[in-house]
Amino acid sequence: MSSQNEIYASRDVTGTSGGAALLSNKSLKLKGRLSLALCDAQIKPLLNLYRQQWRDLVGKL
């Protein structure tokens, strides 16, 4: 994912299960079945850094 991609946060308290649902069926977002909020553009660099650090750590396993 590039830093140009949109990043969404779940508005639901079951964000983990909602995220898993999106991974298995991305059309749920398009059908409006999940309540999502577009993340503020100012935090995108921090989220991208976190993602890269997570991938680096997982790659060392």
Rank of each mutant, 00 (worst) to 15 (best):
P45M: 07
S24K: 12
T14Q: 04
N48A: 13
N5G: 03
G32A: 07
R11P: 00
I7G: 02
L57S: 12
R33F: 01
L22C: 02
R11I: 11
Q52A: 07
R51Y: 13
Q42T: 12
S24V: 14
D40G: 02
Y8N: 05
Y8C: 08
A20C: 06
S10W: 01
R55L: 15
D12I: 09
R51H: 13
P45S: 07
S3H: 07
S27E: 09
Y8A: 07
L46A: 15
D12Y: 07
L57T: 09
K60W: 08
G19A: 15
D12M: 08
L28N: 05
W54C: 00
I7K: 03
Q42D: 11
N5D: 15
S27T: 12
L30Y: 02
L34K: 00
K31P: 00
G19W: 01
W54N: 01
L61W: 07
L22I: 13
G32K: 01
R33Y: 03
G15A: 07
L23Y: 08
A37G: 09
Y50V: 03
G19L: 10
L47K: 06
T16W: 10
R33G: 00
D12G: 03
N5Y: 14
Q4Y: 12
G18Q: 00
Q42P: 05
L28T: 00
A21V: 01
A9C: 10
S2N: 15
A41D: 12
M1A: 10
A41V: 11
L49N: 05
V58C: 10
S10V: 01
A37M: 15
W54L: 05
V58S: 08
L57F: 09
W54M: 04
D12L: 11
D40M: 06
L30V: 09
A20G: 02
L34C: 04
K31M: 08
I7A: 13
Q4K: 15
L36H: 10
T14V: 06
Y8M: 06
K29Q: 11
I43Y: 06
L34M: 06
Q53F: 02
K31H: 02
S3V: 11
S35P: 00
G19H: 01
T14F: 13
C39E: 10
Y8S: 06
K29G: 02
T14C: 10
K44Q: 13
K44G: 01
L38H: 12
